[in-house]
Design a protein around this nucleic acid. Structure first.
Lengths: 222, 222
DNA sequence: AAGGGAATGTCAATGAATTGACATTATTTT
DNA sequence: AAAATAATGTCAATTCATTGACATTCCCTT
């Protein structure tokens, strides 16, 4: 077995490769070279080859990469050949939005339950689920082989809920709460801090404004 | 003026500093050393000092950093001292969820309009806004000094809309559509690719499963 | 007022990630 | 079947990011 640790920088690029390869596949493209992919994706061909080689060679010298094979392999690396059972904690706007987003299911991410602590929401139907009270969370996780929990609750409750989840044997938390979770290292946490992302955008807008714009005609947009 | 380019690695950490400093400020903490902050945030003290020094010294030798001053300065660097006017394109679940999320306004991000191409949504009230038809987008942007657009539409329409936005003089796009936008470089794009994030989580869960777990008791939680 | 202590700012060293170069190997053409 | 072509896999070089070390500076106590 491959035992060298793959850097998160590489992992972070795999979904994008996966997306482009999926599109190429749908267009009926059978083979592609790292150079062609480089042109389409705006990354260096060298990086593409280096990335793929972390997992062993997927291509053939003189030929390139078989699109479908490469697509399948990357999907497998990402764990998309398995299905994952998810619950959503927090049936607010964001929780409901994610619950209604059907594309996740196509990749094997199945929403099995949604929980909230607001009694007025109990029983509310969201797609095929009904909002359940938080107290039932632990039993539900154990009874339904839940892999991952999506945390879409305010940060005030997030740390406590993460602790409760940790004791159920869950394996991953997709955290939308604006707080750092501290869980045992067997539990993977993927943070989506939307306001951080928005602040980065604000910075970059201001940075561009303050740049030396000689050569640009400021304020003139076609 | 400082003209050296700051790396995106540093910028990406600023919102987290900002969050922790805000919390310390709310707790009434007046001063903090890089070492104390290091302990709280789980990053090295050296990195903290290096990061802050990209923007000139915020601290005082022998004393540390003044929490409130540092908080304000980082906010200023991120452009949070200015207000930003936003529109949301796509009044689906996610667009509505973001529109209803009040915390952005506290940081100066003001939602001014929300647009959709679905006529059945026209006029629907979301907070203080009514959903408007897409045709009115360009005029609205120009008339209301809109800085940023939030793209929460399916990827099929996103590229075209981004092109239209580019011709209005908008300065940033917060892109939730699962596609790469190609806009002039004066327009900053911040991508939030949720499915990419979820795939990364799936990878890390599987990676942990396949790791050599000698020393761990697999399957035993609590 | 002076000296000790504390913590920054900064330089150097290390480590990680990206890019460039090319030998090798497979395919395709003649 | 052999030569030419194409493109990978991989090694080396470079660039970028992080960490470590310490001289300098400022605060605080005596």
């Amino acid at each position: 077995m491959e035992n060298k640790e793959i850097s998160q920088a590489v992992i972070g690029r795999l979904p994008r490769y996966f997306r482009f390869l999926g599109e190429l596949k749908d267009e009926g493209v059978e083979r592609i070279s790292s150079q062609e992919l480089s042109d389409i994706m705006n990354v260096t061909a060298s990086q593409i080859r280096q990335d793929f080689n972390n997992f062993g060679g997927f291509g053939q010298q003189g030929y390139g990469y078989n699109v479908e094979y490469l697509y399948e392999e990357i999907g497998r690396i990402l764990g998309l050949d398995k299905t994952h059972n998810l619950i959503i904690i927090g049936a607010g706007n964001l929780g409901q939005a994610l619950a209604n987003y059907t594309n996740f299911e196509r990749r094997g991410f199945l929403f099995k339950g949604i929980f909230d602590c607001d009694p007025t929401l109990y029983g509310k139907k969201i797609r095929s689920m009904e909002v359940k009270p938080m107290e039932e969370m632990e039993d539900f996780v154990r009874a339904n082989e839940i892999d991952m929990a999506v945390l879409t609750i305010p940060k005030t409750g997030a740390v406590e809920v993460a602790g409760r989840l940790a004791r159920t044997g869950i394996r991953g938390i997709w955290n939308f709460a604006h707080v750092d979770l501290n869980v045992p290292e067997r539990i993977q946490v993927e943070n989506v801090h939307l306001s951080d992302s928005l602040m980065k955008l604000a910075y970059n807008i201001n940075r561009f404004e303050n740049m030396d714009l000689s050569g640009f005609e400021r304020g003139s947009y076609v």
